[in-house]
Design a protein around this nucleic acid. Sequence first.
DNA 1: GTAACTGCAAAATATTTGCATCCTT
DNA 2: AAGGATGCAAATATTTTGCAGTTAC
Lengths: 139, 139
Amino acid sequence: MQARIMDILKKNQLSVTESRKKILELFQDNPGALAHHDIELKTGEKFDRVTIYRTLQTFVEKGILHTIPSADNSIRYALCKDECTEGHHHDNHVHFICDKCETTYCLEAITVPEVKLPKGFVPNQIEVVVNGKCRNCVK
Amino acid sequence: MQARIMDILKKNQLSVTESRKKILELFQDNPGALAHHDIELKTGEKFDRVTIYRTLQTFVEKGILHTIPSADNSIRYALCKDECTEGHHHDNHVHFICDKCETTYCLEAITVPEVKLPKGFVPNQIEVVVNGKCRNCVK
DNA sequence: GTAACTGCAAAATATTTGCATCCTT
DNA sequence: AAGGATGCAAATATTTTGCAGTTAC
């Protein structure tokens, strides 16, 4: 686990620091996506808020994390698959946000369906975010 | 135009005030979606920032506007079709955000495709947001 | 006249920037 | 040792809340 984290950092020419290791670890241990605020809590506020901002930004730029759009003003982040490289994301999978437990899942197995656009519109990236009840909350 | 605006407000039991009329008018005149910030600018900062927050919130609650998720921490709002009622939105159309001009379109004609979810996941709402070049920016 | 709405002030929260210090390489 | 990363302070920006005055009905 630790090894994998170091690999990710080194592959992206980032120095291996406490905060980066810890934050990456969080994402690896977590099934879903995390928002800035979650990270602050889960690290026990061990790191400066600013460091978290900068770390997340760096990870997104390097293609280690991707962002998940939401309608509630809190961007969530999730680990990218290996194919992502700097400046080029390939996270064309479906995201699922549970209305009950708020967990955000990256449904890697589900590919984004084709969307037919009107003439003149050229797609670049397609985001699909599904809300509903996740398998743990559908009782 | 004005008549239609009054209709919308009355139908939702909202008193007809300057700010509400003006903001609704903005949405009617605009092809795309608007963020809080856009509205401040387009009204010439005539209304208090707080009033705009409250007006937008009210409109969303009443089903007059819907929100469009985004990955950049700026929620955009767009007019709902008539079928939306208080507490129940039906905006299952595709949203398109232009990478160049930043305009957000509601592609009413394009319905959201079926998405197959893993066992145990029950969908409630599906959001599809496409990024790319719009018909004005594809030269 | 009454309830609803607005504007102002202020609080709470979130985000960004500069800089000195510390850590990684 | 050098460059990069962090933490702190502070500047900005965003969002929320309370309340008094105003407006719609």
